[in-house]
């Protein structure tokens, strides 16, 4: 018994120490550095127009990427679960690509297609006044690409588990496909969608690699918050870097808290279903 307890305590100490040195200490230092002079660093940073711009751009990009990924994510999930077609498994595994490929590769790939010099399609777009690369549009595309699977991976299992009986019942009661979607399908996958949206939001706010390649990192035009943190840090404006980093971290932590609470709700809902 005694040795068993000793093992338990040792394991716990190792895990806590590991998390402390890897996550806890570094992140707490960001907070500590941000508030080293009270709120001064935050106030100075938020008075800097390029900081404010980068935060606004980050939020705008993240929201649009979330919107795109929610609509397409739910649509693709429905197609994957409800229909059989050749190449379905290939599509399903392709959808995991954004999670496994380095964001830098994603950025380069987008430049190859939409770059104003590197591709005929990019040239054609530029001639028609549409700039993708080095513009917010490119940043949104890169961010949407990176966070594409998050909604789908949440929604697909729920759709699979619910089956089609409820939808067929709705149809037999007179509901058309659109009514069935809004009244039956969407409420059924609601929590999965919310969960996916929160994860997508957190991922979109923090995207760095792909955005750095496609944005050109132009201060006050295409510089997002993560890019600004890197630049100010390299320019020895540590306090601004830490203040901005803190704001990004705070939003991510808020997202994690929301997800944790949703998971709890989800779990209790799941138990309720188990009594059927």
């Amino acid at each position: 018994m005694g040795s068993n307890r000793a093992v338990k305590i040792t394991v716990r100490v190792i895990v806590i120490a590991y998390l402390f040195f890897l996550v806890g200490w570094p992140v707490s230092l960001v907070v500590q550095n941000t508030f080293a002079d009270g709120f001064t660093a935050l106030r100075i940073a938020l008075a800097d127009p390029s900081v404010v711009f980068s935060l606004q751009l980050t939020v705008a990009v993240a929201l649009q990427a979330v919107l795109i990924n929610t609509v397409f994510g739910v649509g693709i999930s429905l197609i994957l679960v409800r229909y059989d077609f050749p190449g379905k498994r290939l599509l399903s595994s392709l959808l995991d690509l954004p999670l496994s490929v380095s964001p830098v590769v994603v950025g380069l790939a987008l430049i190859l297609v939409y770059g104003p010099r590197d591709s005929w399609f990019g040239q054609w777009l530029t001639e028609h006044g549409i700039d993708v690369i080095f513009s917010p549009l490119g940043i949104i595309m890169a961010t949407a690409f990176i966070s594409l699977p998050l909604v789908i991976r949440e929604v697909v299992p729920v759709l699979t588990e619910r089956g089609t009986d409820e939808e067929l019942a709705a149809a037999s009661l007179g509901a058309g496909p659109v009514q069935t979607f809004w009244r039956i399908t969407l409420p059924a996958i609601k929590w999965a969608v919310v969960y996916g949206v929160v994860l997508t939001l957190a991922r979109s706010l923090g995207e760095f690699g792909a955005v750095k390649i496609v944005s050109g990192n132009l201060e006050g035009r295409t510089q997002t918050a993560t890019l600004l943190v890197e630049q100010t840090y390299q320019d020895f404006e540590q306090s601004t870097a830490y203040a901005t980093a803190f704001l990004l971290a705070a939003v991510s932590v808020a997202c994690i808290v929301v997800v944790t609470f949703l998971q709890k709700d989800h779990a209790s809902a799941g138990r309720g279903k188990g009594t059927s």
Binding site: D165, E166, A169, A170, I184, P187, A188, K273
Partner: peptide, 13 residues
Amino acid sequence: VGFVFQHYAAFKH
């Protein structure tokens, strides 16, 4: 046509 399913197909929400 009214249809009743083996596993009820109740609208759970």
